[in-house]
Design a protein around this nucleic acid. Structure first.
Length: 264
DNA sequence: CTTTGGGCCTGGACGC
DNA sequence: TGCGTCCAGGCCCAAA
């Protein structure tokens, strides 16, 4: 995408999760793409004068049509289209509209309200056991909810929170402040290995997961605990008659799955 | 400052 | 078959 210009920008509605900014089309049209980056779950498309901040939400799909490739008829949930100078077309489809797009000036990017308080990238070199431990020290809430707080660490959503705690052997109910030392170290390793495996597998959440060329996603990433209430935990030969296997509970209105025997 | 709960939104699963 | 109801997700934001 780098080097290409937004030749035409088509908006088919005025908002997704939040309204599109005023003059969205005008501000982007004619801008040349300099860099494409990611921060937390935000895709950042930087041009000379603007940065497009783009979140796919949970049901958002990006479809990239190559030069001369036939663009499919406009669907009900096709909300935005970008025609690039190369002849490629990008279509953003988002049935649930939990996605969002915003624009900011490059020099204001770091101060943008959606980005300014985001914690360290879990796969970057600013994330480690001691750093996580420090961030958890004053937090009384359950560790599951606290690691889903983007200010603590970026981009650990509901499913990967459960999976990470499982790998780390930490109970989701444990007070976050008590996740220190070796436990924090273990949790960092778990988050990194879970995210790494999920990325390698090409994502894992929705069943209609798609690649940008429209192909079906492939889900090699299988959940150890998520959605597996009552099943035996794959790691410890859980005696289901004693532990009832994987358990489900609700924390902050979100589902949590864990093995009470392996996770303490 | 932290924590909690509401809100956004649709499709799919479910029961009648 | 066609309704109504519930649930799932990310994550911001107002209120406590």
């Amino acid at each position: 995408m780098e080097g290409q210009t937004f030749e035409r920008v088509i908006l088919r509605r005025k908002n997704l999760r939040i309204p599109f900014p005023d003059c969205f089309v005008e501000r982007l049209t004619g801008q040349q793409i300099l860099h494409v980056n990611r921060r937390a779950k935000y895709l950042l498309i930087e041009t000379l004068d603007e940065v497009l901040i783009w979140h796919l939400g949970m049901s958002g799909q990006v479809r990239i049509y190559k030069i001369d490739e036939q663009v499919e008829p406009i669907g009900k949930h096709d909300h935005v289209q970008f025609d690039l100078s190369s002849g490629a077309t990008i279509v953003f489809t988002d049935p649930r509209r939990f996605g969002l797009m915003d624009l900011t000036k490059p020099k204001h990017l770091a101060d943008h309200r959606l980005l300014k308080d985001i914690g360290p990238e879990p796969l970057g070199n600013t994330f480690s056991g001691p750093i996580l431990a420090h961030r958890l020290k004053a937090r009384r809430g359950p560790i599951k909810q606290v690691i889903m707080d983007g200010k603590v660490v970026a981009g650990v959503g509901n499913i990967y929170a459960s999976e990470s705690l499982y790998r780390a052997g930490i109970s989701p109910k444990r007070s976050a402040a008590t996740v220190q030392g070796g436990r924090a170290e273990k949790l960092v390793n778990a988050i990194q290995s879970v995210l790494g495996a999920a990325i390698e597998a090409g994502g894992s959440t929705l069943k209609d997961h798609r690649t940008t060329d429209g192909g079906l996603g492939y889900f090699q990433f299988s959940f150890a605990v998520y959605g597996r209430t009552g099943q035996a935990c794959p790691d410890c030969d859980c005696d289901i008659s004693l532990t009832k296997g994987i358990r489900h509970l609700e924390q902050g209105g979100r589902s949590t799955y864990y093995c009470p025997r392996k996770q303490r």
